[in-house]
């Protein structure tokens, strides 16, 4: 695999990372640097380990009993597997495919994380809620209805609420697993614009099946593929502008031009 030529300082580094579900190897020898303050998209055919790799970055896979890993993933210089997992997930937030607000008010959804981390001061909480909703491009739409249920919002608003909820604990990295696949095109574009603004403060990694979205919204693109034994690996990783106009690998070319398989 060609490595990414980027001037950005690496925020996330995977070194010889392997992941197994029982006897089945799902990820094979992942070696990658993800630059900070940038948007990196992960694309590739179904079942090649994109989401598995994404979920590895905040150790979500540990919730699955038979998972074991070898190799390392670093957040800055820190080995994430020796870190306290609660602390890690505070630094590495996650947004899922389907918006999943808690059945609580908009305010309580956003304040949930800071409260769980022990914050009780109401004025500080209000400040965090406003900043998080503003950064998630939702504040203007909900500022007069913060007491309303998060579930009463539209799908696109709910997803931005989930982003605000992730931002409220001031993470450094935001992982997004198909964050717009359940949204209409306008709501999708809102999310894409939103993440462009977020990269000033955060490092964003996004798994998407929508290649136009990867092309529009990301700075770098990582292409996963599957070995004959069905384990996932990175076939190519480069600037998005290069991957979508002149990929180096034939498999990438076939995948992005829709001639795969």
């Amino acid at each position: 695999m060609r490595s990414l030529q980027s001037n950005g300082k690496p925020k996330i580094t995977a070194k010889n990372f392997n992941l197994f579900y029982g006897d089945f190897q799902a990820l094979k020898e992942i070696n990658v640097d993800i630059p900070e303050h940038s948007i990196t998209s992960i694309i590739g055919p179904s079942g090649c380990g994109k989401s598995t790799f994404l979920r590895s970055i905040n150790r979500m896979n540990e919730l699955i009993p038979c998972v074991k890993t070898t190799g390392k993933i670093f957040l800055d210089a820190n080995d994430i597997f020796t870190q306290d997992v609660v602390e890690l997930r505070k630094q590495v937030g996650m947004v899922f495919q389907r918006p999943n607000p808690f059945p609580k008010s908009i305010f309580d959804n956003v304040a949930y994380g800071p409260r769980a981390h022990g914050l009780k001061n109401k004025a500080v909480l209000e400040e965090i809620v406003e900043k998080s909703l503003t950064d998630a491009a939702l504040w203007d739409e909900v500022k007069d209805n913060l007491h309303k249920s998060g579930l009463a919002l539209s799908g696109g608003q709910q997803q931005r609420l989930c982003i605000a909820r992730a931002l409220a604990v001031e993470p450094q990295v935001i992982l997004m697993d198909e964050p717009a696949s359940a949204l209409d095109p306008i709501a999708t574009l809102k999310i894409e614009e939103l993440i462009q603004n977020l990269k000033k403060e955060y490092t964003i990694v996004i798994v998407t099946h929508n290649m136009q979205q990867a092309a529009r919204a990301s700075d770098h693109t990582m292409v996963f593929n599957m070995n004959p034994d069905r384990s996932g690996y990175i076939i190519e990783y480069g600037k998005t502008s290069q991957i979508f106009t002149n990929p180096h690998e034939k498999i990438t070319e076939d995948y992005i031009s829709g001639r795969f398989g």
């Binding site: 002149n246 990929p247 990438t252 992005i256 031009s257």
Partner: peptide, 9 residues
């Protein structure tokens, strides 16, 4: 058709 790569070129 929103072509990429060689198709786009």
């Amino acid at each position: 058709q929103q072509p990429f790569a060689r198709d786009l070129r």
